[in-house]
Design a protein around this nucleic acid. Structure first.
Lengths: 136, 136
DNA sequence: CTTGACCCTGTACTATAGTACAGAGTGTAT
DNA sequence: ATACACTCTGTACTATAGTACAGGGTCAAG
C-alpha cells in the first residue's frame, strides 16, 4: 500500500508540515501508521481528509464543526436516525450560509451596477441592504 | 437625532459590550460622537454596521475582509474603476464560497438519501465526494 | 563515515478575535 | 447623600488555529 511521509503529505495538500501534527492532536485525523523507526506513514485517505479540512475551513467552518462533519461518517455503531438528524442539522447550517452569501452577492452586484451607471451617491449599498437580518 | 449608549447598542445587536470598543479600535466602526462627559453615543448607522459585521463573520469573513467589504462604500475620492475592480474581486470570492457550500450541501443530501435507503456501507460520502478540489 | 535533509518529541511563540477586570468618574432613584 | 448601574481608560487574560524551534535520531549520497 502506498504511503507518504509528513513532508510529502504537507506538500501535496499545501499545508504547513506542523499542521498535520496539530490535526492529529486535535483528533481531526487518526494517528497514522508508523515505520519501524517511528516515522509517520500517511495514506491516500489521510490526504483526502486533509483536503476536506482545508476546504471546509475556507467555507468558514471551525475545526470543531469540521470534526462534527467528519463524524457524520456512517458508523455501524450508531443508529441511522441519529446520523440522519445530525446531517440534517449540518445541511440547514450550510443552507443558511448559502442564503447569507447570496444576499451578499446581490448587494455586491447591485454595487457594480450602480458603479457602472456612475451614480456615485455616497450611500453604502452594502450597509443599506445587508444590515437587516439579525439571525443568519 | 436618536442615539444609543454602549450597552443599548450591544444589547440591540447581541454582541458583547467590549466588542464595540474592540471594533472601534480595529477601525471597523468610526469613533462615535461623545456626550459632554465622554460617553459614546452611537447612531442607527452604527447599529447597522455592527449587524453587518456579525452577519459577515457568520459567513466566514475575517475582520480584515469585512473591513475591505465596508470600504467598498463609494467614496467620492476614489475612482469608480477602482471600486468596481475591488467589488468584482469580492463578488468572485463570494461566488467561490457559494460553490463550495453547494458542493457540501450536495454531499450532505446524498448522505441523507443513503441513510434513508439504509445502505449503511461504512464508506464516508463526505470524504468521497468532497476531497477533490485543491482550490476553492 | 560524515553531511544534509529528513523525522521524532516537547514546548514556546504568534495572530486573530474577542472578553474580563481594575480603578476611576457619572447619573439617578430613594 | 449614598447606593447602584452605568460609563471611561488601560491592561491582562482567553480560545482558536496554527507555526517555530530546540535537542535529538535516521537515512542516502558522496
Amino acid at each position: 500500500m502506498e504511503t507518504m511521509t509528513r513532508s510529502e503529505l504537507a506538500k501535496e495538500c499545501g499545508v504547513n508540515i506542523e499542521s498535520l501534527r496539530f490535526y492529529e492532536k486535535r483528533r481531526l485525523i487518526d494517528p497514522p501508521k508508523r515505520s519501524e523507526v517511528g516515522y509517520r506513514l500517511y495514506s491516500r485517505e489521510d490526504a483526502a481528509r486533509i483536503r476536506f479540512i482545508q476546504n471546509a475551513k475556507k467555507l468558514g467552518f471551525t475545526l470543531n464543526e469540521i470534526m462534527e462533519l467528519l463524524k457524520l461518517r456512517v458508523k455501524k455503531t450508531e443508529s441511522c436516525e441519529s446520523v440522519l438528524a445530525k446531517t440534517q442539522t449540518k445541511l440547514d447550517e450550510v443552507e443558511q450560509k448559502i442564503k447569507g452569501l447570496k444576499s451578499m452577492k446581490k448587494v455586491l452586484k447591485q454595487m457594480i451596477h450602480q458603479c457602472q451607471e456612475a451614480t456615485l451617491t455616497g450611500d453604502c449599498p452594502i450597509l443599506c441592504s445587508f444590515e437587516s437580518g439579525r439571525e443568519l
